[in-house]
């Protein structure tokens, strides 16, 4: 077992724990970030357009 494999071996799946859990963590982070960015895109844009309108027509 390499040092990194030994360090994470207390987790489920023993000597493969580092590879498995790192894979799942990266997957959750990247997919989560992409989904949140996608879902917030429209709301952020509406807020920006509203702010622009307020700047042009203060009342």
């Amino acid at each position: 077992m390499t040092n990194i494999e030994q360090l994470f071996s207390f987790l489920p799946y023993g000597k493969y724990a580092f590879y498995i859990w790192t894979s799942y963590a990266i997957c959750i982070l990247v997919m989560g970030y992409t989904l949140v960015r996608s879902l917030r895109m429209r709301t952020t844009l509406i807020k920006q357009l509203k702010d622009n309108l307020k700047r042009i027509f203060p009342e």
Partner: peptide, 20 residues
């Protein structure tokens, strides 16, 4: 289903920007 949800959400934002 993830792709379908994410792509529709992004496309809504892009269309809103283009059609502002």
């Amino acid at each position: 289903f993830y792709y379908a949800g994410a792509v529709l959400a992004r496309a809504r934002g892009l269309l809103l920007e283009r059609e502002q």
